[in-house]
Amino acid sequence: MATQPSAPRKTDIGPPHYEQFLHPVIKKNYGQWKYHEYLKPGVMVHVAESGDKIYSIRVGSPRLISVDVIRLFADLADKYCDGFLRFTSRNNVEFLTDKEKSIEPLIKDVEAQGYPVGGTGNAISNIIHTQGWVHCHSAATDVSGLVKATMDELYEYFVDMKLPYKLKLAAACCLNMCGAVHCSDIAILGIHRRPPKIKDEQVSRVCEIPTTVSSCPTAAIRPTTVEGKQTVKVDEDRCMFCANCYTVCPAMPIADALNDGVSLWVGGKVSNARSEPMFTKLAHPFLPNNPPRCRRVDRADWLAEVL
């Protein structure tokens, strides 16, 4: 067990400075941009005061990607963009070039590799999402699968710009809502529907009881003693299954294969344009987990109707 490092270690160096990653046209025109236009779905041009142009080709990505996929993006960037690219705040990848003639060959190559060009303007820009069963230990559902199934259904709205306006989607595997589920236009939220199953003999050993009690938004948790052991009990009428207690107290697991599922939320927004940011509102309280595609209830039809 090593507690002493052997040689002076570099620490606290922070990220690399972004400047080294900027396309020369971007660097030259930094802070001097004049306007932008959509040339077609997935292709933007930004025009600088100087007249210089930078083209951005936006490509959909599953976010959960292997080094093979990243290397593919790197290869494409080398081939068509002098190696310059970026990722977006909604998990897409953008290839950046100042050469208009590179656009079509890049698009053809990207699409041949199985990646869609789109997500710009009045479109769905991808679904922000969390780890789900792939990695999250408080997940009520899987999210990568849900996102894949949903984007398959809504694919036409990614590769085109035919919606009334931008549509931001998000999916989260539990109420911690990593991402922006609480403010997206349409959101899918993993939920539990049964109270935690308390392991009394573990609680006082691994959980700080006051923190566990105060972790409950509805004050449903009280300290108690069971067979001489300090533990907690949950008032099941007050419990709304948020699983925050499980986060602070590992002795209160809450996942329930029969009753966990997803809820659907509508009507949030993150930006200030025209109106203030808003929270999403509950549209459908429960759909059962039915991996891989939740086909049983044909929810994709519902979403298509909403659009």
Binding site: M1, T3, S204, R205, V206, C207, E208, I209, P210, Q230
Partner: peptide, 25 residues
């Protein structure tokens, strides 16, 4: 007062205190 039992009973959890997953430090 509130936290000390968590530390005291920490050594009873084989997950955190026995190989293979323990943090020895």
């Amino acid at each position: 007062q509130h936290g000390v039992d968590v530390v005291i009973h920490y050594i009873e959890d084989p997950e955190t205190c026995r190989p293979p997953n323990r943090n020895t430090e």
